[in-house]
């Protein structure tokens, strides 16, 4: 009863009004990029949620593997000196 060939899946990224970076909002199916943008407008920006849309084929996204989360992010764990709170600055200096 359904079509044989499914339209590719596109991941949708929207830049909101506030000048922020594009942010992932969800996905949708469309035959090509042009239609994906039109559909994204209807599905994800019905209330002025965006001023710019990016779409990218889900199959084109490379992702880190959840099972390697440990080894991938471990190196940052030990580097506490990357945070400002690592350093004690005399209070009389005021804000730094």
């Amino acid at each position: 009863m359904t079509d044989k060939k499914e339209w590719p899946l596109w991941e949708v990224f929207i830049r909101s009004q506030h000048g922020l970076a594009h942010r992932h909002v969800g996905s949708l199916h469309a035959p090509d990029a042009e239609m994906a943008i039109m559909n994204a407008r209807d599905v994800y920006t019905r209330r002025n949620e965006g001023v710019s849309i990016w779409v990218v084929k889900a199959s084109e996204i490379a992702a880190s593997s959840p099972s390697e989360k440990g080894p991938l992010f471990d190196p940052a764990n030990s580097k506490v000196y990357r945070h400002p709170t690592f350093y004690e600055i005399p209070e009389e200096l005021g804000h730094m």
Binding site: D3, K5, W7, A30, P31, D32, M35
Partner: peptide, 9 residues
């Protein structure tokens, strides 16, 4: 409509 969109793509 879906078939036309496919053909156009």
């Amino acid at each position: 409509v879906r078939e036309a969109a496919d053909a156009y793509a």
